[in-house]
Simulated assay, not measured.
Amino acid sequence: MLITAREGDLGNGLKVRRVLPYAKRRMVGPFVFFDHAGPVTLPPEAVRAADVRPHPHIGLSTMSYLLSGEIVHRDSLGVVQRIRPAEVNWMTAGRGISHSERFEHPASFAGGGLELMQFWVALPEIDEECEPTFTHYGSEALPVIERPGLHCRVLAGETMGQRSAVRTSSPLFCAHVALSAGTRFTLDGVYPEQAVYVARGAVASGGQIAEPGQLMVFNQGADEVLAEQDSVLMLLGGEPVGPRHIFWNFVSSRPERIEQAKGDWRAGRIPLPPDDHDEFIPLPG
């Protein structure tokens, strides 16, 4: 299956490509949401308006990874953490957490503009109500694989014989790959669901070509991918955890839990970040 991301605008110049969920393919393994934001550069006067104000999550882990730029994360656990390229912020919402993502000029737009990959990973049912946690992983925790024409950083899980130090709740993998034109590589075929997203360039597999903003989804198997051009890719996949309900920032195996989360946010029962509590995003609708 070839999925073309939907263009979206989070407001105030922050544009995204929304890859998952897709009408005909809600998830890939446990990955239930995937946004590619930017690259974008904003003038100093526009930065404050583009901030992502405090908002809640339940039932998932978020993984944030930057290709360029910088973001300041604050959450209701009291964590304040900058994230830069080649690092991973892994936040597990469990029973409920809130966080904000703030930008600063000029650091947030260094290196060609802010470019963010953000993934939501659905938690197994047994972990949906776990205690919320946050962990920052530096580049030393994310192994790099170098082969002729290929550079791969393993962000989570295991691929190409290397395992990330990022702690996950279910079997999955995610990697950032740069390929030179004409280079081939083969997906491990270990996981029953896997996909290749093209951020830049173009790749071919099985007679299909994927271009920027497209996700090529595979079933289990050692599928070969060929770079038609110099390309930047995100690889992802894993073991399915079962269907999930999604409303706004809430993910759950149970629709009634989504309704509870709506009420909790309206009533202020999900705390705000102690260092960022003067404003928040209200429940849609």
Rank of each mutant, 00 (worst) to 15 (best):
G213F: 05
E256F: 14
A181Y: 01
G113Q: 07
A93S: 05
S108W: 05
P124A: 06
M234D: 09
Y65T: 05
D223Q: 14
A210F: 03
H277C: 13
R82N: 14
S64G: 14
F218V: 08
F280D: 15
P274M: 11
L233V: 01
A107P: 15
R18W: 02
P284D: 09
L172C: 05
F31K: 01
V251P: 05
P30E: 07
G237L: 02
K15I: 13
D51W: 11
R84L: 11
L187P: 02
E101Y: 07
S164V: 09
S205P: 04
L179F: 00
D51P: 01
E140M: 12
A5L: 03
P243C: 07
L187H: 03
G112N: 06
D264F: 11
P143C: 05
F34Q: 00
P132H: 06
I246G: 09
E146L: 07
A107E: 10
E193H: 04
R74Q: 12
V225K: 06
D223H: 11
F119V: 06
E87V: 11
F250A: 13
F103P: 10
F109I: 06
F31P: 03
K262S: 08
F218S: 07
V203Y: 05
E115W: 12
P143Q: 04
L172M: 07
W120Y: 08
F173E: 05
A5N: 02
D230R: 00
F185K: 00
G189H: 06
G263L: 13
P274H: 09
F103K: 11
R163E: 13
G263Y: 08
A107L: 12
V232A: 15
V177N: 04
V47C: 04
E87S: 14
F250I: 06
P43E: 14
A156T: 08
L155Y: 06
V190Y: 13
V203K: 07
L123Y: 02
R74E: 13
R167E: 15
T183I: 01
H99N: 09
H55S: 02
V52Q: 13
M117Q: 15
I270W: 12
P56Q: 00
A122D: 08
H55Y: 00
A23P: 10
G38M: 08
K15M: 15
